[in-house]
Design a protein around this nucleic acid. Structure first.
Length: 156
DNA sequence: GCCAACGTTGGC
DNA sequence: GCCAACGTTGGC
C-alpha cells in the first residue's frame, strides 16, 4: 500500500517538537487522543512508514514545524488504564480498549515554520482538514498537500 | 483571555 | 433517539 500522510497537532506547552527530540531515539508514543474520529485513524489507518506533519497549535501563529515518521502502528493507549494519568478512562477495559496510540519518530525540523495563515492563502492547501475542521487533532493529509508544505518549509 | 465551533453527556 | 447543557479546543 502506498505511503500515507497525516498531520498531528500538539500544544508545545504540553508536548512539542522539543520534547519529542529529547525522547530516546527521538521516538515517542502519541498518547492522550480522546476523540473517536482521531482514534479510528490511529487504530485502523495509520501505518508504519507513514509521514507526519508535526503541528504546533496555541502558537502565534500556529504552524507546521517538523516532519516525523510512524514507527509503530496502532496499539492500546496505556494511559487509559493508569489511574494517576489525566487521560485515565474508567470505562475502558484491556479486553476492549477504547483509545489507541501510534509511535512516531522525529525526522527533521523544517528550515522554517509553515504557518496557518500561509497555509490558508496557498492554492492547493485550501481543502486541508486543518483549514476546514480545525479541531481534529489527528487528520489525513493528501500527498500533494504534504509535498507543498515540505517545499514551503525548505525555502528561507 | 475571549469566544465560536463542535464534540460529548445525560435526561426525557 | 432527540436535544439542551456542558466542556474543550484552538484561533485570534
Amino acid at each position: 500500500m502506498a505511503k500515507a500522510y497525516w498531520l498531528f497537532k500538539s500544544d508545545p506547552e504540553d508536548f512539542g517538537v522539543a520534547e519529542l527530540k529529547k525522547c530516546k531515539n527521538k521516538t515517542s508514543l502519541w498518547d492522550g487522543v480522546r476523540n473517536y474520529q482521531a482514534r479510528n485513524l490511529l487504530r485502523d489507518k495509520i501505518k508504519v512508514g507513514d509521514g507526519v506533519l508535526f503541528y504546533h497549535s496555541q502558537e502565534k501563529p500556529p504552524a507546521v514545524v517538523a516532519l516525523a515518521k510512524v514507527v509503530r502502528a496502532g496499539y492500546p493507549d496505556p494511559t487509559q488504564f493508569d489511574k494517576r494519568s489525566k487521560y485515565y478512562d474508567p470505562k475502558s477495559t484491556h479486553e476492549d480498549p477504547r483509545w489507541f496510540v501510534v509511535d512516531i519518530r522525529h525526522e527533521r525540523d523544517l528550515k522554517r515554520p509553515v504557518t496557518l495563515p500561509e497555509i490558508r492563502e496557498t492554492p492547493g492547501l485550501d481543502k486541508m482538514v486543518l483549514v476546514n475542521r480545525s479541531r481534529l487533532s489527528v487528520q489525513p493529509v493528501r500527498p500533494d498537500e504534504y509535498k507543498i508544505i515540505v517545499k514551503m518549509g525548505q525555502s528561507t
